[in-house]
């Protein structure tokens, strides 16, 4: 009995600790106030990748709309566990937010279950094109192959060893699109180039990402790229070995200013502004959106500190324009 009591006490303590650690959604003010957005994200808002791209976009939307009087947003980040995320999504919806963003393709089935219970609330889910045919779900995705292609073109033009390394997470969704685009761009530019692709099987294992990057360097790669939030490990390796790095999702320049050449940056506000307008007109969902180079939802940002040769910069700009005009196709499909 005594033992059982202790188990119970320990469980209680753990439970209390856990509930103390949960992000508490702040109660929004009632009616006629600012437009209220809540977002649930798998990694942290400063992951320099996927989650940060959404957080930064929301900050820009807020600024454009006229500050906190016009729009407020709350977030729950670090929601790797889908069950926790589902609880947070439901909680936000019940609190009466105007728009609830589920920023992660893993949250889809939870949303499918939750959205019909809150017909007055608009939900947004990404990255995907699937709205499940539910009236109050919007979907968004990124044509990440486009920026991947541009990065691939630059990398293949700059490499001296003709070996490029790619550190991918899991072979799926916009990660796979980006990687395939990068490979296509590199191969189209330099037929001698060899692109070594690794999928480490995790979105979060930073140490494993650095291990994969070390393998690329050992195999002779002098330029690398990678996608998802675990690439910070790989960027460290690139910097240590003076290998070029190409970023995606958010700007990764500050992590390694000496080796980052260019970043494809997601500007989700392109999609968010459209969705907010639609909600204002009374449409709560049923449509899907894609950010790409053409609509400005994706931009290639060059690291000003990196001394990029003029002809390569021109080639990159031509490639961007070509993709926008439709004269260049990345030849990548999901």
């Amino acid at each position: 009995m005594k033992k059982l009591r202790w188990i119970l006490i320990v469980l209680l303590v753990v439970g209390l600790l856990l509930s103390a650690c949960q992000a508490q959604p702040a109660a929004p003010e009632e009616e006629e106030g600012p437009f209220q957005i809540a977002v649930v994200m798998p990694s942290s808002i400063n992951d320099l990748a996927f989650s940060q791209s959404m957080y930064d976009a929301l900050l820009r939307v807020q600024e454009e709309m006229g500050g906190e009087e016009a729009m407020t947003f709350d977030y729950s980040d670090g929601m790797f566990v889908v069950d926790d995320a589902a609880a947070a999504i439901r909680d936000y919806a019940a609190e009466g937010y105007d728009l609830v963003i589920a920023h992660g393709s893993q949250y889809g089935s939870s949303l499918q279950e939750i959205a019909p219970d809150f017909p007055e609330t608009s939900f947004v889910w990404g990255t995907t094109v699937d709205t499940f045919g539910i009236d109050n779900i919007f979907a968004y995705e990124a044509a990440s192959d486009e920026g991947g292609y541009v990065n691939g073109v630059i990398a293949a033009s700059l490499t001296e060893s003709d070996v490029l390394g790619v550190v991918g997470p899991i072979e799926t969704g916009d990660a796979k699109l980006y990687v395939d685009g990068f490979v296509a761009g590199a191969e189209a530019t330099n037929p001698d180039v060899q692109v070594n692709v690794n999928y480490i099987g995790s979105f979060s294992d930073v140490a494993l990402a650095s291990e994969a990057a070390n393998t690329h360097v050992a195999a002779g790669a002098d330029a690398m790229t990678g996608t998802a939030q675990m690439v910070v490990g790989a960027i460290g390796v690139a910097e240590e070995n003076d290998a070029m790095w190409f970023g995606t999702q958010s700007s990764q320049t500050e992590l390694a200013p000496d080796v980052v050449v260019a970043n494809q940056i997601y500007r989700w506000e392109v999609v968010l502004n459209e969705i907010i307008d639609l909600i204002g007109e009374g449409t709560l969902g049923g449509q899907s959106f894609t950010i790409n180079l053409e609509n400005g939802g994706e931009v290639i940002e060059f690291n000003p500190e990196y001394d990029l040769p003029e002809d390569v910069k021109d080639l990159a700009d031509d490639t961007i324009q070509g993709i926008i005009d439709g004269t260049i196709s990345t030849d990548v499909s999901e």
Partner: peptide
Amino acid sequence: LQGWAQNITG
């Protein structure tokens, strides 16, 4: 890793 990252132990 020479730096901190979330879920560093993986």
